[in-house]
Design a protein around this nucleic acid. Structure first.
Length: 417
RNA sequence: GGAGGAGUGCCCGAGUGGUUAAAGGGGACGGGCUGUAAACCCGUUAGCUAUGCUUACGUUGGUUCAAAUCCAACCUCCUCCA
């Protein structure tokens, strides 16, 4: 297949989203002749999605932009089971309350990327607990069990890898793929969904759904996956000093989110621009030709654009400005992440170690101590050598804050209240 | 049900009575070099009210001056047999 007829698949390929696609000719024909409805499933194991999920969200966005209908499937039911794909260990089970809290917190993110509503191409958010929790075990087994063979399930990577690595795979997790397959069937019945998208680790699960749909309803379903995101140097993407790169603002500040993209490796800039921004391909191609330090301009653009999509233009520009002041001018930037401290603590003299820990720059006094020893700590851009140093009112700069830094990149402003 | 093997720090993995907060590697973090990049070099990598104390080698007990290391029971996993 050399060229796609449908805008959707063409864009997906041009921008580098496609890893695998089942029956792409038929899918292409279908997408070029009418509205298709597609979904991506999201687990709710945390209170926020992270950049690893961004690819799925972006796919739905592209789908909608191409005039099709995206469905966000929240795995309220399947999260109660736990997906074994790509994991060595059984994930600890979450309580129902936790799951519901997570769902509430996660759903806000989608509104930034998709247009929801009742129109034919408006996005829809559904939760699989609506049908999974109602299932009757015996009925379900009789209706759908015969369509799955253990022999076949054993061949899927999610199962095979666990067994090969001699890690336990519980029956509970073993059922995950069956539920995901059933989701696809159910969404096809309820909303005429014909395409499921996801990361490449979902391929097996999706194929299971396609087969179930064909066997039970003679439905013609499709799969489309993206490559899992890794950096050029091969490491998994999505980690910062603080942990995962969350999409929710209350979990990771727009400034830190901006920084994450700003620190992209040279070799990834073009790829990420295509995947995570909506700049024209021609412009990206030009940006890619930049070399050496000039490439930093492309990284800034990537950071600001990607940040704007997740947090809004205003915050993205603010983050960009904060970064400019901090790194290019070396001046105090008020937009850096800040932590409130009591003025009275300062009067009595606030220990530097304590300050570093409360600022989140160190996880323990011991770590703070090590950072000081290593010469990484700065107070108002002046290196701190003495771990017994006390912070007092004198340390408050003209801007009314105390700037604490660990290393070149991590800065926190202490603000008195 | 029977026989054998395994469970170590964020991960992998060495260690089989004392100098072991536990080799080595990975990851992560910090420093250097740079461009807030990569690669490379160096360092750090349990907590604390810190010349000491506490926690830590699946769990719980026991032996011993002393245990990750020996013993017992239990839990979990793997392999072979039935």
């Amino acid at each position: 297949m050399t060229s796609y007829k449908s805008d959707f698949l063409r864009v997906m390929r041009e921008r580098g989203y496609i890893h695998q696609c089942s029956n792409e000719d038929a899918l292409d024909a279908k997408a070029s002749s009418g509205i298709i409805t597609a979904y991506v499933g999201f687990d709710c194991t945390a209170a926020s999605l992270h950049v690893g999920n961004l690819l799925g969200i972006m796919m739905l966005r592209k789908l909608q932009q191409a005039g099709h209908k995206p469905i966000v499937l929240i795995g309220g039911g399947t999260t109660r089971v736990g997906d074994p794909s790509g994991k060595d260990d059984t994930r600890k089970l979450l309580s129902d309350e936790q799951i519901n809290e997570n769902i509430a917190s996660i759903r806000t993110v989608f509104e930034r990327f998709l247009t929801f509503g009742d129109g034919p191409t408006d996005a829809l958010l559904v939760n699989n607990e609506d049908w999974l929790l109602k299932l009757n075990y015996i009925d379900f087994l009789r209706d759908y069990g015969p369509h799955f063979t253990i022999n076949r399930m054993m061949t899927f990577d999610s199962v095979k890898l666990r067994l090969e690595r001699e890690q336990p795979l519980t029956f509970l997790e073993f059922n995950y793929m069956i539920f995901q397959a059933y989701d696809f069937l159910e969404l096809n019945r309820q909303h005429d969904v014909t395409l499921q998208m996801g990361g490449s680790d979902q391929w097996g699960n999706i194929i299971n759904g396609i087969e179930l749909g064909r066997r039970v309803d003679q439905a013609e379903l499709y799969a489309l996956t993206t490559a899992l995101l890794t950096t050029s140097s091969g490491t998994k993407m999505g980690k910062t000093a603080k942990g995962a790169v969350w999409l929710n603002e209350d979990m990771l500040s727009p400034y830190d989110y901006w920084q994450f993209w700003r620190n992209t490796e040279d070799n990834d800039v073009g790829r990420f621009l295509r995947l995570f921004t909506e700049l024209p391909l021609a412009e990206i191609a030009e940006l890619e030709t930049l070399e050496g330090a000039d490439l930093n301009e492309a990284k800034k653009l990537l950071a600001t654009t990607a940040c704007a999509m997740a947090h809004g233009e205003e915050k993205a520009l603010a983050a960009s400005e904060t970064a400019r002041k901090t790194f290019e001018q070396g001046t105090m930037a008020s937009g850096l992440p800040s932590v409130d401290i009591n003025a009275s603590d300062l009067d009595n003299g606030l220990g530097l170690l304590t300050a570093l820990v409360t600022a989140g720059l160190a996880s323990s006094n011991g770590e703070a101590r090590r950072h000081i020893k290593g010469g990484a700590v700065k107070i108002n851009d002046v290196k701190a050598e003495n771990e017994k140093r006390l912070l007092g009112g004198d340390d408050i700069s003209d801007d009314g804050v105390i700037k604490l830094s660990v290393g070149k990149k991590r800065h926190v402003l202490l603000k008195t209240t």
